[in-house]
C-alpha cells in the first residue's frame, strides 16, 4: 500500500519527470553521435578493409586478403619504416630539447615569460604553414645552401629535400621545430609541481645541482616523460600535413608515412579496401599505445 502511494507520488508531476530525465536527454545526441561517428565508423572502416572494394564500396566479404596484400606493397613497407625512423627521431629530439629548455627556464631566468612564448608559438601554427616555411628554407639552391655558401663555405651542399635518402630528415627537422615547445611546456609544468623542499633538503645534504637534477628531479618527472611520449607518438602516427606540404611523400615515395599512404590509396588511387586496411593498421598502432596508457592512468587515479 505504502509502495503504491510512493509510486503514485513519483509520477504525479510531468514536470518532475522531465527534470529527472533531463541530464540523459541532454547528452543523448552526443551519445548517439559518438556511437555512429566514432564506433560505427571504425567498424565500417574495418569492414571495408575486409571487402573487395576498389573505387566504390563493395561489401563482399573477403577476410584478411587486403591485409596480406597491404604488407606485400613496398610503399606501405617504406611508410612503416619511415614512421619508425621519423617517429623515433622526432620523439627523441623533442624530449631532449624540451627537457633541456624546461630545466634551463626553471632557473629563475629573467625574461622567462618572453622566452617561453617564443618557444611555444610554433604550436599555434598549422603544419601546412610550418611546412611552407621549411620548404623554402631548405630549398636546394636558394635556401640554407646559398646562405652557407655566401658565408664562405663554397662547397657546402644541402639537398636533403630532394634526396630520397635524406628527405625524411627534413620532416623530422620541421616537426621538431613545431612540437618541442609543447614538450617544454609539459616538463616545465612538471618541474613546477615538484615539491621545492625536496630539492632544498638535497642541497642541505650537500648534493651538487647537476646531481640533484639527475638523481631527484628528472626521475620524479617520469609521468611527464610518459605522457609526452604518448602524445608525441600519437602526433607522429597522425602526421600527414607536414609531409604533404614539404615533400608530397617524395621523391618517389621515399617519405611516405602511413597517413599519406592511406590518403593516396583511399582518395586518389581509388583502392578503398587497401586504404581502409592501412587506416585500420594505424588505428591499431595508436590503440596499442593509448589503451595501456589510459588503463594505467585510470587505475592509478582509482587507487588515489
Amino acid at each position: 500500500m505504502a509502495e503504491l502511494m510512493r509510486t503514485a507520488e513519483r509520477s504525479y508531476n510531468p514536470f518532475t519527470i522531465l527534470e529527472r530525465v533531463m541530464p540523459k536527454l541532454v547528452v543523448a545526441p552526443s551519445f548517439v553521435a559518438m556511437l555512429i561517428f566514432i564506433y560505427g565508423f571504425i567498424l565500417w572502416t574495418v569492414y571495408i578493409s575486409m571487402s573487395k572494394s576498389t573505387f566504390l564500396p563493395n561489401y563482399d566479404f573477403v577476410g584478411l586478403v587486403q591485409y596480406v596484400r597491404l604488407w606485400k606493397i613496398d610503399r606501405w613497407y617504406v611508410a612503416c619504416k619511415n614512421l619508425l625512423l621519423y617517429g623515433g627521431l622526432f620523439i627523441a629530439f623533442c624530449t631532449a630539447i624540451g627537457l633541456l629548455l624546461a630545466i634551463f627556464l626553471d632557473q629563475k631566468i629573467r625574461l622567462e615569460g618572453a622566452l617561453r612564448s617564443i618557444y611555444l608559438y610554433p604550436l599555434s601554427l598549422s603544419f601546412v604553414v610550418t611546412g611552407t616555411a621549411w620548404r623554402w628554407m631548405l630549398n636546394p639552391g636558394l635556401g640554407l645552401e646559398r646562405l652557407v655558401r655566401e658565408m664562405g663555405w663554397q662547397s657546402f651542399s644541402f639537398d636533403w629535400l630532394v634526396n630520397s635518402d635524406m628527405a625524411i630528415y627534413t620532416i623530422v627537422i620541421a616537426a621538431v621545430w613545431q612540437s618541442t615547445g609543447f614538450v617544454m611546456a609539459m616538463f616545465l609544468a612538471g618541474l613546477r609541481g615538484i615539491d621545492n623542499s625536496i630539492i632544498k633538503a638535497a642541497q642541505v645534504d650537500g648534493a651538487s645541482l647537476p646531481r640533484i637534477y639527475l638523481k631527484i628531479v628528472i626521475p620524479s618527472l617520469r609521468p611527464v616523460f610518459f605522457g609526452s611520449f604518448i602524445i608525441l607518438t600519437h602526433i607522429a602516427i597522425k602526421s600527414f600535413d607536414l609531409v604533404v606540404v614539404l615533400t608530397r611523400g617524395g621523391p618517389g615515395y621515399s617519405t611516405d608515412l602511413p597517413a599519406t599512404f592511406m590518403y593516396a590509396y583511399a582518395f586518389t588511387r581509388g583502392r578503398l579496401a587497401l586504404g581502409a586496411a592501412s587506416a585500420t593498421m594505424m588505428f591499431m598502432m595508436v590503440m596499442a599505445i593509448i589503451v595501456p596508457y589510459l588503463y594505467s592512468e585510470l587505475r592509478s587515479k582509482a587507487n588515489g
Partner: peptide
C-alpha cells in the same frame, strides 16, 4: 587517428 573514419 582520423584516417580510420575518413572513408565512412
Amino acid at each position: 587517428p582520423f584516417q580510420v573514419i575518413l572513408l565512412p
